[in-house]
Amino acid sequence: MRTSEPSTFPRNAWYVAAMAAEVQDKPLGRQICNARMVFYRAQQGQIACVEDFCPHRGAPLSLGRVCEGKLVCGYHGLEMGCDGRVIAMPGQRVRGFPAIKSYAVEERYGFIWVWPGDREQADAALIPPLHWHANPEWAYGGGLFHIQADYRLMVDNLMDLTHETYVHAASIGQAEIDETPCKTEVHGETEVVTSRFMHDIPAPPFWQMALRSNGLADDVKVDRWQICRFTPPSHVLIEVGVAHAGKGGYAAEDAHKVYSVVVDFITPETEDSMWYFWGMARKFNPGDAAVTEQIRAGQHKIFSEDLEMLERQQRNLAEHPERQLLKLSIDAGGVQSRKLIAQWIDREQPVQRPAAAQA
């Protein structure tokens, strides 16, 4: 028998909390998995994270400032340490104040990662490796959206790319996506992979632009691939690209293709809102900043279309909680990803043992 309230997200996991550039001289307040946190840079620029709650009067510490590596409350000047303990307060004796919660936090790959759950279980080795980061053969550009929708709707969206034909018809959508079946595989409790390979098709506008930017012809048939990899708690990395038809498709040499990884880090804020960190790492023409910005702007437009769809979907679902949604073959990636999320949540729930029989 479960004793705790049901949750919609695992807490003992690493989530992207911010882009590293968001946390500089000032503290940053952000709500993650229903917990209000404040991120700031302590001594030597080391990232720190504590509850966004001053133990004096409950003011948000994110409205304060950072002074010599200490977080200073903007209400009465109380100073906090990165371990959640009170350090000092002008004219007051505060050493006996109760500590607030501090969180395991890491800065890696240009992101700030936080572990909302049991700090003792946090292992930095579990942060997913991003092999393209700081690799001169790759370039990256991305951004952040705040979306009023259940984070699992975004997982569904990214693990079923048939929606591209309709939502993104002017950029990456094409009928061949609908016409080509996809394959979904589950690898234990660590990964769901949905893949689709299309052969001898025209390149849609976005990929025509990518081909041109790499000095390749954009008016010939191509082979196209989409390989969506979900890993708990809510990360989706999608290998995408096109190669001139007949050159080997996904396995083609770099001279004949444009290859990228769409980066999607989806962080629940509450049960019906999320932080969506998006971007694209590309392995072609990495030194061209104009191409990076062109792709980033194109992605921004594409994901803005998703944002509108998901927020309206969320409103519909909230208004009709009694309705059961259909599950089709194209939904397999999202369905299996949700099963993994549920498994991760379930193993965090304490089990109430039956009371000993009374004499």
Results as ranks from 00 to 15, higher is better:
residue 292 T to W: 01
residue 131 H to T: 08
residue 327 K to Y: 00
residue 230 F to E: 06
residue 280 M to R: 11
residue 123 D to V: 08
residue 283 K to C: 11
residue 240 V to H: 12
residue 256 H to Y: 15
residue 285 N to V: 00
residue 142 G to Q: 08
residue 49 C to S: 09
residue 257 K to L: 10
residue 108 R to A: 03
residue 275 W to C: 01
residue 332 A to D: 06
residue 19 M to L: 14
residue 68 E to T: 14
residue 340 L to V: 04
residue 330 I to E: 03
residue 322 E to F: 14
residue 328 L to M: 06
residue 190 T to M: 03
residue 152 R to F: 04
residue 161 L to P: 01
residue 1 M to L: 08
residue 287 G to F: 02
residue 253 E to P: 03
residue 148 Q to S: 14
residue 140 Y to W: 14
residue 226 Q to H: 12
residue 199 H to W: 07
residue 120 E to F: 06
residue 10 P to A: 13
residue 224 R to N: 00
residue 205 P to L: 12
residue 165 T to C: 09
residue 162 T to N: 13
residue 31 Q to C: 14
residue 338 R to P: 00
residue 294 Q to Y: 10
residue 344 W to K: 09
residue 301 K to I: 06
residue 282 R to T: 05
residue 145 F to K: 11
residue 53 F to L: 15
residue 270 T to Q: 11
residue 165 T to R: 14
residue 85 R to K: 15
residue 266 I to A: 04
residue 262 V to Q: 13
residue 309 M to R: 14
residue 356 A to P: 00
residue 285 N to T: 10
residue 167 V to D: 02
residue 227 I to Y: 10
residue 35 A to Q: 15
residue 326 L to Y: 03
residue 199 H to T: 06
residue 357 A to V: 05
residue 344 W to T: 04
residue 146 H to S: 08
residue 303 F to Q: 05
residue 72 V to D: 02
residue 60 P to I: 08
residue 7 S to V: 01
residue 38 V to H: 04
residue 183 K to Q: 03
residue 193 V to N: 05
residue 107 E to G: 03
residue 143 G to T: 01
residue 8 T to K: 13
residue 265 F to W: 10
residue 239 E to T: 11
residue 198 M to A: 08
residue 332 A to F: 05
residue 338 R to W: 02
residue 94 V to R: 13
residue 292 T to S: 06
residue 294 Q to I: 09
residue 61 L to I: 04
residue 181 P to H: 05
residue 295 I to W: 05
residue 16 V to Y: 03
residue 98 P to T: 01
residue 274 M to S: 10
residue 103 Y to E: 05
residue 267 T to N: 08
residue 218 D to C: 08
residue 354 P to W: 03
residue 177 I to M: 10
residue 220 V to H: 15
residue 226 Q to S: 13
residue 12 N to C: 07
residue 230 F to R: 11
residue 349 Q to E: 05
residue 260 S to G: 15
residue 93 R to P: 00
residue 148 Q to H: 15
residue 105 V to E: 01
residue 80 M to H: 08
residue 142 G to V: 09
residue 27 P to Q: 05
residue 327 K to T: 00
residue 71 L to V: 06
residue 351 V to N: 00
residue 192 V to G: 06
residue 167 V to S: 04
residue 86 V to R: 04
residue 83 D to Q: 09
residue 316 N to K: 06
residue 40 Y to K: 11
residue 32 I to V: 11
residue 341 I to A: 09
residue 291 V to R: 07
residue 11 R to Q: 14
residue 124 A to L: 04
residue 41 R to H: 05
residue 150 D to L: 03
residue 90 P to F: 10
